[in-house]
Design a protein around this nucleic acid. Structure first.
Lengths: 156, 156
DNA sequence: ATTATAGTTGACAAAAAAGTCGTATTAGCG
DNA sequence: CGCTAATACGACTTTTTTGTCAACTATAAT
């Protein structure tokens, strides 16, 4: 269970857009500087996000990227999906390795249920978390999310 | 958010052990055949599981691997952890990429809270799922887990 | 004791993911 | 128009993860 680099850094770039005034064009250069990432990488990530219509680009001089909706209208599940994210059960089953032509468990697989439920469970969480909630102070964010998820918080 | 190959295949091998009579030694050869994986790979996975004391090996002729506890005493969170699994927030923060020496958000990072809560949330789910529940028919497993997680099931 | 079967180990090879680069395209501005 | 600063895109390189191999050690059976 790994959070991929694309998810991590893609989300960060998105947050940079969310932080700036709505509708304002922010250049890759600026985002790259603020996140300490290379321009090339930031471009790649933003193009990914653009494919899923979370942002759009403005070309030419003074160009850059803009968030398509407001931060409170974008939930984490969408973002994670856009960034290549959530494992779809069919993919897991399809993508098997090994000596056989198809997964040994094609027609009866206890695991499939586990993964598919876990995925849905995570999705619930992510759908309930909006970009806007991540813009505050760390302590605030922690409180808010913890309340939402019903998890008691022991430490940061 | 990816389920890694090690988690997927390691868990499967473990399930093969869980399926056989408790305390019985099962050879890598046998597991490999049943899962359609190479012996070498199955060995590697079982050694990983052995490191975390979920199984132990018996050497020599008639050797193989044995589950250390009974399936109803082993939860998925342990298994996933043994297989390299759950992302620890410190790791994510530490493992940053980019042009700077440390993550740009070291002292105030909204994301940290999200990942850490998501992780805990998933952990709850995985801790409540035991190896024993994965031994039944797919349909049964699905029902059982869905009940446990409070997620309504729409389709398989 | 010998032999055959099984696990052990670390190095290696292959595949996938992460990240970079160069060239093309677009738009503002003089 | 032509220059400059920006995105677009695909090919490429690097790094990490997956998976394999070969030489080695342990043990039961004979």
């Amino acid at each position: 269970m790994k959070i991929t680099a694309q998810e991590e850094y893609g989300l960060r770039c998105l947050l940079q857009l969310a932080r700036s005034e709505h509708g304002k064009v922010v250049s890759v250069k600026e985002i790259a500087a603020k996140e300490g990432l290379s321009r090339a990488y930031v471009e790649k990530l933003l193009r990914l996000l653009a494919k899923s219509d979370l942002v759009h680009s403005v070309r030419g001089i003074n160009g850059g990227y803009v968030l398509n909706r407001q931060p409170y209208q974008i939930n984490m599940a969408e973002v994670v999906r856009a960034l290549g994210g959530m494992p779809v059960v069919e993919q897991i089953c399809d993508d098997h390795t090994g000596t056989q032509a198809s997964c040994m468990h094609v027609d009866n697989c206890g695991l499939r249920s586990v993964w598919s439920n876990l995925t849905q469970y995570m999705d619930q969480f992510l759908e309930a978390t909006f970009l806007s909630s991540l813009l505050h102070d760390e302590a605030e964010v922690a409180q808010q999310i913890s309340r939402q998820s019903g998890i008691e918080r022991h430490e940061v």
